[in-house]
Amino acid sequence: MNIKYLTLPLIAATLVFTGCASRKPAAEITTGNTPNGSTTVSTEGLSEDAALNAQNLAGASSKGVTAANKAFLAKRVVHFDYDSSDLSNEDYQTLQAHAQFLVANANSKVALTGHTDERGTREYNMALGERRAKAVESFLITNGVNPQQLEAVSYGKEAPVNTGHNEAAWKENRRVEINYEAVPPLLK
């Protein structure tokens, strides 16, 4: 038997076992309270991403959350008409609630991701997705949000939520998602 046919599986097995042996076991997320009443999170043993997510969830804020705007803050998607970056009247209350929360929570950060349906070229859709994200960003800034809290990004047609090829699917995909990256609203 030829030695090169034995070497490749041996190297692959060594890499797999070495990688598994160096992984940390799953860590438990524990929380506690400080004397001033704020919540602390132990992220010992967590990966960097998992630690950031645990801190963000523990750092959720109820400041700026009212009974009146709670339902609007729960909505994290704004939809658009075909080939448009104009905000609809239905979305103003949602965006106003997010603006109010962001103004009250200066440590909150949001990524505004613009999306389009599958029709049109990749380049056109990337530009349209950016116009949509910038329209939401502009509304939030006009309503008092610090621009440093916002990041507008376009995914164009690359990340559909509905992979159908009809008007209902396209309508769902024409959107901007409001993704809290730090200090999301506490909606309990």
Rank of each mutant, 00 (worst) to 15 (best):
R119L: 12
V110R: 01
T116F: 05
E90R: 04
Q96V: 11
E90I: 08
A133S: 12
M126K: 10
N53A: 13
R76S: 13
A51W: 02
V77K: 04
T40M: 08
S47Y: 00
L112T: 07
A104P: 06
A60K: 09
F101D: 07
A71F: 14
T113E: 10
E118M: 09
N107E: 15
E123Q: 08
A97R: 03
S84P: 03
A127S: 13
N89H: 07
A106L: 10
A104E: 10
N69A: 03
V78L: 04
R76H: 04
N125D: 09
F72T: 08
V41Q: 03
G45A: 07
G64M: 03
V78T: 14
A106H: 12
L46N: 03
L102F: 11
Y92P: 00
F101L: 02
N105T: 14
L112S: 05
A68L: 11
D49A: 15
L87A: 09
R132N: 05
K109M: 11
E90C: 00
L95G: 01
S84F: 07
A51R: 03
T113V: 15
D117L: 07
R122I: 11
T113G: 04
L87Q: 06
R122A: 11
G129Y: 04
K75A: 13
Q93W: 09
Q93E: 14
H98D: 03
G59S: 13
V78I: 15
Y92W: 11
T66V: 10
E118T: 15
M126W: 00
M126G: 02
S62V: 09
S108N: 08
S88Y: 02
H115C: 13
